[in-house]
Amino acid sequence: MTTATDTPMLSPSFNLSRVIADAIKLEMEADERIVVLGEDVGRQGGVFGSTRGLQKAFGDRRVRDMPISEMAFTGMGVGLAMSGYRPMIEIMFVDFIGVCLEQVYNAIAKNPYMSGGRVPMPVVIKTAGGCIGSAAQHSQCLWGTFAHLPGMHVVAPSSPYDAKGLMAAALRSDDPVIYIEHKGLLLSKLGDFPHGAEVPKGRYTVPIGEAATVRDGRDVTIATLSASVRDALVAADELAGQGIDVEVVDLRSVVPLDADHVAASAARTGRLLVVDEDYLGFGLSGELITRVLELLGPGALRGIARHGVANVPIPAARSLEQAVVPGSASIAAAVRELVARG
């Protein structure tokens, strides 16, 4: 992640969505096969601004506003890919995936396999997830849902640097990539991010499938991703004052899942807490802990815990929401509880 000091950088006053739009623009300039289809991606430039300027730059053939017909335009991604294009399909909120999951998990994800490798699906599904106080149908993450279904890479960046590099990697990948940006981060200014805030102006990629340690520590490893990385870093600062030294690992992708990186960290610290803003059951936390234990052996760690959205829908009232969605305070409490166990 180091860059030369003379590399031109994006302004710290930019927000994250503008960085993502910038990443898409650079890749579209380099590869005319990339086309963008979605609701409000053109004239408005995305409801969060993460496709701003693209239609102006590339015209309405390559950046096309779609009707509220997710089944149709997600399926268009399949046909476009089979015709040699590299479509990026925007599903405004990840919660809406239910209306078009068919084309995502039965076609985009499986056509490469079902065709015996003859039909690649270089499709990016770009979508916004995460909790923003909008309750059960507009605040989910759902990366575990995609990850459970074979055939899709699933990325969820936490920082501006990764958001740009992972978007570039997704658009250059010959595999389907689900790119889940966090609604709660999109409008944050680069200067407000605790890590990865410096973003080069030029093109670069962050490899899909590699976790990154964003804070070194000795006592406990927190493995998490997306906006929870920021919350984990806040919790770590608080815990440092209480004599607990926390290492924070940003998974960056759910598929591929870099369990090796997490296992190496947990083997050093002896404790692992997986924090997941997605649903707790049958998801990322159970999968990651299982893989770490498969790598290290069942008795390798002093403590293992997970902290996610217990299997309830996201509630509306702030008091209820805070009771179920991990935040920096609840993460700190989960770490203290883990350490107190021994």
């Binding site: 149709a72 335009f73 268009m76 046909g79 890919a81 089979m82």
Partner: peptide, 8 residues
């Protein structure tokens, strides 16, 4: 939907 993508 897939054929529509080919058409586009």
């Amino acid at each position: 939907p897939v054929a529509l993508g080919h058409a586009y």
